[in-house]
Design a protein around this nucleic acid. Structure first.
Lengths: 115, 115
DNA sequence: TGAATACTTAGCCACATGACTAACCAAATG
DNA sequence: CATTTGGTTAGTCATGTGGCTAAGTATTCA
């Protein structure tokens, strides 16, 4: 995994992991509770948690024999901003194209051409 | 790849593919031009384009012997909205926690306790 | 028409990923 | 202190991913 963004997007490319994030935005939870709704073996699920933790999207600490997992907001925002930035560039380009088309249209009209 | 979201995020988890998207937001381009800045073999690069196209983030059509690639805005927006939604839930939860803390503080004050 | 251009297909390889079982460890609880 | 509970480690396996070279096809240009 080269950089941070790679890890964010890769982490979110799996439905199990997205479900965990969706659960965690409404508060921290122990591993067992997070695992419950998923029909996969615990060790498999633990690997998903490791991936999330490695990506920085999630943190956890052990209290007694349970491990509490909680979300980390910053990386989520970072991924969102990348997408936002791309969409904005894209939209501003559409605006420019629109303006160009309009200008060409006005010029055509003023030179008195007929289609 | 189970659903659409999996494909979007998986597609964006690779730096080469993100770079292609970053290039395409400012307008369509032929395969050769897209490939130029990347130091990998053409067939390898073509695979990345296939992944992007399969994810719906990109489309292309062949004109003569060149293939023109252009971005598809909708999926980009969809991924962005998922992230936005999670962030909002997360933020509203922080707000509620903040309000709770405040309320507890007010109650503590009004019962005349000293720390 | 022959050569150059712009992809395209096929096939191979190393390593990553997601899933499993089995066995293990450490904190709570009766 | 024995047992249960809640995770953890280790090891195996099939499939997916990103990279390569070599060879092929279809346009365009001279």
């Amino acid at each position: 995994m080269t950089n941070q963004m790679d890890a964010f997007f890769a982490a979110l490319s799996d439905p199990t992991r997205r479900a965990v994030i969706e659960r965690l935005v409404s508060g921290p939870a122990p591993v067992g509770e997070l695992h419950a709704p998923h029909d996969i073996a615990l060790p498999t699920f633990l690997k998903h948690l490791k991936v999330l933790e490695a990506s920085g999207l999630v943190r956890s600490e052990k209290k007694g024999r349970v491990r509490i997992v909680h979300i980390e907001a910053a990386p989520l925002a970072e991924a969102e901003h990348w997408l936002q930035r791309q969409r904005r560039i894209w939209e501003s380009r559409l605006d420019r194209l629109g303006a160009l088309a309009e200008r060409l249209e006005r010029e055509r009209m003023s030179t008195g051409e007929t289609p």
